[in-house]
Design a protein around this nucleic acid. Structure first.
Lengths: 120, 120
DNA sequence: CATTCATATGATAACATATTCATACGTATT
DNA sequence: AATACGTATGAATATGTTATCATATGAATG
C-alpha cells in the first residue's frame, strides 16, 4: 500500500515560521521606516545632509523644488528620527539625527553594487 | 563701515554639496530599493523567508492573503534581487537571495530600537 | 508695530501602489 | 488529451503619496 503524501501540507513550516514572526506592530514600524528612505526627494535630502547641515531654502534651491515641498519632506524625515534641526534666527538648519542613516543607506548601496556586478 | 553679510547666501554650501551628490540615477535606484522594504506585506514575506524557504501558497496562507497578492509582491521582491526561487514540479519555492536582506533589515531594526529608547 | 524673510501647514490635484477578481500558464497525473 | 493543482498575470478599484498653491506662523529689523 502506497502512502500518499498530500501535495501541499504546510502545517509544519507554517507553525515554525509563525512562531518566529515578530509582532505585526514591529513589522509595520520597520516597513514605515524604510518607506521614508523609499523616495527620491528624501534620499536626495539625506545625501545632501551627509555633507553638511543645511537650511530649508538651501535644500530647496539645491533640488530645484518648492520650499514647501522640502518642508513637508523634512517633516517626514524628522518624524522618523532621521534628521533633527536647530533654529538660528529666522533660519532653521537640518542635520542628520545619527549615524544609522549613513549605515542604512550604505547597506542599500552595497546591495545595488552587488546586484549590478552579478548582472555582468 | 559695516560689512553686511547677505542673509541667505548658500552659494558655497550649494557648490560643495552639489559636487558631492551622486548621480540622480543612483539615488533613484537606492530609493527604489528601500521602497521595496517599505511595505508591510513584503516585510512579512521577507521575515518569513528568514526562517525557511516557502512556496507561494504557504506564504499566502501564513499571511491570510490571496495567492495572487503574494505572487505580485514576490515579483517585486524578485525584481529587486531580494528573493530568488526554484521550481519543484508545480510548486515554486522562494528564498532570500542573499544576506544583504538580513543586514539591511537588522539596521532598520537597530534604528527603531534606539529611537524607542530615546523616547523613554 | 508694520514689514520682510524663512519656514510650516492645510487643501487639492496628479500620480503611484496594493489588493482582488478573473483567467492564463505550466506541470504532473490519470 | 483532459483534468487538477500551483503559480503568474492583466485589469480594475481603492487607497496612499507627493508636489504645488495659498496662506499662516515666527523671528528680526527699521
Amino acid at each position: 500500500m502506497v502512502v500518499h503524501i498530500l501535495a501541499h501540507n504546510h502545517e509544519e513550516i507554517l507553525k515554525k515560521v509563525k512562531s518566529e514572526l515578530p509582532e505585526d506592530e514591529l513589522i509595520c514600524d520597520l516597513a514605515d521606516l524604510f518607506k521614508v528612505f523609499g523616495d527620491t526627494t528624501r534620499m536626495k535630502i539625506l545625501y545632501s545632509l551627509f555633507e553638511s547641515e543645511m537650511c530649508v531654502c538651501a535644500i530647496a534651491e539645491l533640488l530645484g523644488m518648492a520650499q514647501s515641498a522640502i518642508s513637508h519632506q523634512l517633516k517626514v524625515l524628522k518624524n522618523a528620527n532621521l534628521v533633527a534641526n536647530r533654529r538660528e534666527g529666522k533660519t532653521v538648519y537640518y542635520f542628520l539625527a545619527d549615524n544609522h542613516v549613513r549605515t542604512i543607506v550604505a547597506q542599500g548601496f552595497d546591495h545595488l553594487i552587488e546586484k549590478h556586478q552579478k548582472q555582468k
